[in-house]
């Protein structure tokens, strides 16, 4: 019985992240629009966009190779796998032992690797500029998040997210400087990894300022739809990650009753709403940085993560 419940939880999580991801994107857009005193599109608009994109034909650049056509699916699969392993409403995911937090980060790295390659495939300057800048940002952001992972893993004594969530929800954690530093680092990395302001602008199509959009410029139709889903999933993953590590309260433990699961789900949605509001506020309040300021911004996260880890060695 317990096994069935655990399997159901994992299956539900798998579908939940996929279903919620576009909604989160739509919600952030809506809030940002309202903050600018615009009406903004409905929160359901991303779903409509995806459906329309999926129904349209693909216009493929003449020089595009098989890698360009397979990359969206690989990016989506790697991101989905990572997102399915971050506990959202219940902490006891049955496949949590498949990949720990380091592996989840590396799965996102795989997705980025193929996205950057896809950007290079057609052979225009836009794709190149996107890939090359993405490589630069990732070269600082990835060690930064790994340092954050180290901090969390050292505090919780485990790098498995289910265990981490359980530990961080228990009173043994207490108040630690390292956790605060890690949280700060994770915020910065989440902005950089999801191509948000001030690192990148998800709404721009001004070529010289874009990173993520430049890489996917040649994509159209269903390929673009799959890539859009993957980026939404990534945003949801980071939001869930912050929720799971730093505010794991209310998560249903394995073997809990229906009421606990319902409470966990409600609290999870509340956490998403709060974090999305925070993201929209932050993005509306700050201007985009010059590209070469970004390494300093993300480098700060690296230093915070390293400091957090070093403090734990004392």
């Amino acid at each position: 019985m317990a096994l069935v419940v655990d399997l159901l939880t994992q299956g539900l999580q798998l579908i939940l992240v996929l279903a919620l991801a576009p909604l989160l994107t739509g919600f952030v857009r809506k809030v940002k629009a309202r903050l600018l005193r615009r009406q903004g599109p409905s929160v359901w608009q991303p779903y409509r966009d995806l459906l329309r994109l999926a129904r349209k034909e693909v216009v493929l650049a003449e020089n595009a190779s098989w890698l360009f056509r397979t990359a969206p699916y690989l990016i989506f699969a790697a991101t989905w796998a990572a997102a399915a392993l971050v506990p959202t409403f219940a902490s006891g995911l049955i496949f949590s032992w498949t990949a720990d937090l380091i592996a989840i980060i590396a799965l996102l790295g795989s997705a980025r690797f193929f996205l950057a390659l896809a950007g290079m495939d057609v052979g225009t300057a836009f794709g190149g500029i996107g890939s090359s800048r993405e490589a630069m940002i990732a070269s600082v952001a990835e060690p930064a998040i790994l340092m954050m992972v180290f901090t969390v893993a050292l505090v919780a004594g485990s790098s498995q997210l289910s265990t981490v969530a359980r530990f961080m929800g228990s009173p043994e954690v207490g108040l630690r400087v390292s956790i605060g530093l890690a949280l700060f680092a994770l915020f910065i990395v989440a902005l950089a990894e999801n191509a948000r302001i001030p690192v990148d602008n998800p709404a721009t199509h001004l070529e010289l300022t874009m990173v993520h959009e430049a890489m996917v410029l040649e994509y159209s139709g269903r390929h673009l739809a799959v890539i859009e889903v993957a980026s939404s999933l990534k945003l949801l993953l980071y939001v869930s990650l912050i929720g799971c590590i730093f505010v794991p309260w209310g998560m249903a433990a394995s073997g809990a009753g229906i009421a606990d699961y319902a409470l966990g789900l409600a609290l999870y949605l509340a956490k998403i709403v709060v974090l999305a509001l925070g993201l929209a506020l932050f993005e509306s309040a700050i201007a985009k940085m010059r590209v070469f300021r970004v390494p300093q911004f993300v480098g700060a996260a690296l230093m915070l993560g390293l400091l957090g880890t070093l403090l734990l060695f004392f």
Binding site: A54, V58, V59, L60, A61, F126
Partner: peptide
């Protein structure tokens, strides 16, 4: 959904 595909020049 769709599996239609067309080749065209890259955005220049």
């Amino acid at each position: 959904a769709s599996h239609a595909m067309r080749r065209g020049p890259a955005w220049d």
